[in-house]
């Protein structure tokens, strides 16, 4: 077994900016090829198509969290387990990828408004459990950075129903699992790049090439273009 995250760091200069590249690489479990899928194509679904450019809240450094990575299976019956998440970053520090979930027993007996606070995150300034602003700072559930071996069995239809149930304040049949990307940046802003979600399906290694762009807005010209 190998570790799923092996940080590397390099530096580059881009448009006058010192851009810090940090990479966690999934080296996988030796041997065998890895099939790369666009999100929506393989057995595991996570991440969307598009992106979010998060406005800087004022004050630096600042921390932001990106969601939109609800996990689901479009291959019912297949055994799917997470291996790791690999990525590069541009001017981001304190990066972590967390799995957010909850137990159904946590929700039973709660009021609908309380249940709805377990719903999946889109994005927020801050990091769990201390999100900043509005309802997000009360988002409930558990967060772990230990992704290795996490099983994903919920079908995408069921995941959508569970998400609707929780959003509507009802206890779902199954809990939703979703990934949260957390990072800190300074006045220049930064972004995630080349994100891959690595998993195993029925013993075969595969990965999703993420197509959801995550940007933390700042004054760097390349970043600013994405925020206007």
């Amino acid at each position: 077994m190998r570790r799923s995250h092996i940080p590397k760091t390099s530096a580059s200069l881009c448009l006058g900016l010192a851009l810090i590249l940090s990479m966690t690489a999934c080296l996988g479990r030796g041997g065998g090829s890895v099939t790369t899928y666009a999100d929506g194509r393989g057995a595991l679904i996570a991440g969307g198509s598009g992106g979010f450019a998060m406005a800087a809240p004022g004050g630096v450094p600042w921390t932001g969290s990106f969601g939109e990575f609800a996990l689901c299976s479009q291959k019912p019956g297949a055994k799917i387990t997470l291996d790791s998440v690999s990525y590069e970053t541009e001017n981001l520090t304190h990066v972590k990828v967390l799995l957010h979930t909850y137990a159904l027993s946590d929700l039973k007996g709660l009021s609908p408004s309380k249940i709805s606070r377990y719903t999946s995150l889109g994005s927020s300034v801050g990091q769990p459990p201390d999100f900043v602003g509005g309802e997000a700072d009360h988002q409930l559930g558990s967060y772990t950075s230990n992704l290795k071996g996490v099983a994903v069995s919920q079908t995408c239809d069921d995941e959508r129903k569970s998400d609707e149930d929780v959003s509507g304040g009802a206890v779902p049949d199954q809990p939703v699992q979703d990934l949260i990307f957390v990072a800190q940046t300074n006045a220049l802003g930064g972004q995630f790049k080349n994100v891959y979600i690595n998993y195993t399906v029925d013993g075969q290694r595969a990965r999703i090439k993420n197509q959801w762009q995550m940007t933390m807005c700042g004054s760097a010209p390349a970043i600013r273009r994405q925020c206007s």
Partner: peptide, 19 residues
């Protein structure tokens, strides 16, 4: 519509064809 996500201030973009 009920499939909602909380978003912070910023720009939400929907593109690419994997959805």
């Amino acid at each position: 519509w009920k499939n909602c996500r909380r978003e912070s201030a910023g720009i939400f973009s929907r593109y690419l064809s994997n959805g």
